[in-house]
Design a protein around this nucleic acid. Structure first.
Length: 363
DNA sequence: AACTCGTGGTT
DNA sequence: TAACCAAGAGT
């Protein structure tokens, strides 16, 4: 005896998500679409790695022009390994989290020198390289090498926490969430699964007002079942941002050159270019004013700028002076019209723009 | 384990 | 507009 009508098995979460991804995936410069992958096109590990490092805590929109610029200047990981560090830092300027750029260079050098210019094709091998942590190693292994790694970023945390209505707060609940991701990840198309989870979090399962009616998990989601998807993920309370103050000094020669310095290699804005500043302290009377200028001159106040970093807010008073020809106190001098070649972080561009409104072209 | 580390867009 | 937060890593 045989049963002629075996029941149709329910679709797995992965199958639902991949079906959704095949219909709704986004075109991105570093991405191979599912249809192109079917035709045999493979993702370039260098492109995937470069994009994943740039995308750490950074939006797709911000990354796109930097990704194009880097690929144009350094088409292969060997090219990047051979590039001068100053060029890489200047090219990264404005993207933030500058330790990423320092580690990007170290990683390229390691791949070129220790791996014959070929990226390791396992999660563990990738994880051992500079700047590649839990997320990036799993993402590159899955997307570039089709490994069934459990890929979890902020988007995936949000999707998982809602799907299972996880009440435990982040970051403590990360291991529990990662175990869920590991359960869900298919051996077939793991890279597309990872990208689909992140796309879902970015476009449907958004932090506010998620579009649950369009979600492939709408029939499975416990947070939706209790009519409160926005309650997840639960996060530990964060502390307030302190304010630090200081002063920045813009010195210009009569021939239009501006005085610059190089910041310490480690720490905040490590290895980047700056104009001279005082220390940045919490106290307004802690040596943060004009009396701590880099050299004696006719410093003129020209307002203040504010810049918000991850863990503090900075308020800098800006001063400027014009030096007579032939007098150049110690420093390094660059014509104002060539500032675009320097590794100037955004806060320093704000200071210079405050003193010289025409210094940078407006977009 | 908690803290450091940028910037720009969205709400 | 103040808060939130984005394909996290290193220490």
């Amino acid at each position: 005896m045989l049963d002629t009508l075996s029941p149709i098995p329910p679709l797995t979460h992965a199958a639902k998500l991949l079906s959704w991804y095949d219909r709704h995936h986004r075109e991105l410069p570093w991405r191979v679409s599912p249809s192109a992958a079917t035709a045999g096109k493979r993702a370039d590990p260098y492109h995937i790695w470069l994009s994943e490092v740039m995308l750490q805590q950074t939006t797709v929109q911000a990354v796109k022009p930097y990704f194009a610029k880097f690929l144009d200047r350094w088409p292969s990981v060997r090219d990047l390994a051979a590039a001068p560090s100053d060029d890489v830092m200047a090219a990264w300027a404005g993207l933030g989290y500058y330790a990423r750029a320092r580690n990007l260079k170290k990683c390229a050098e390691a791949v070129a020198a220790d791996h014959d210019g070929i990226f390791p094709d396992t999660e563990d091998g990738l994880r051992a390289l500079p700047g590649i942590g839990d997320y990036t190693s799993a993402a590159v292994a899955a997307i570039a090498f089709n490994r069934p790694s459990a890929v979890m970023d902020g988007n995936v945390e949000r999707v998982i926490s809602r799907l299972y209505a996880i009440d435990a707060p982040l970051p403590g609940s990360k291991p529990v969430m990662k175990a869920k991701v590991r359960e869900l990840t298919p051996t077939d198309r793991p890279g597309d699964f990872a990208q689909a989870m992140m796309d879902l979090g970015a476009t449907i399962c958004t932090p506010k007002r998620p579009a649950c009616a369009l979600c492939p998990f709408r029939d499975d989601c416990l947070a939706l079942a209790e009519h409160h998807p926005e309650r997840f993920p639960v996060k530990a309370a964060k502390k307030e941002k302190p304010v630090r103050v200081g002063a920045g000094f813009v010195a210009v020669t009569e021939s239009g050159e501006i005085m610059l310095r190089r910041r310490a290699e480690t720490g905040l804005l490590g290895g980047m270019t700056e104009v001279p500043t005082t220390a940045w302290t919490a106290r307004t009377d802690g040596g943060t004013g004009i009396d701590h200028a880099p050299f004696a001159a006719d410093w003129q106040a020209c307002g203040t700028i504010t810049h918000v970093f991850t863990h503090f807010e900075l308020r800098l008073s800006v001063f400027r002076t014009r030096l007579p020809a032939g007098i150049k106190p110690s420093g390094w001098w660059v014509p104002v019209e060539k500032l675009d070649n320097e590794a100037l972080p955004t806060v320093m561009k704000k200071v210079i723009s405050q003193a010289i409104p025409t210094a940078f072209a407006k977009h």
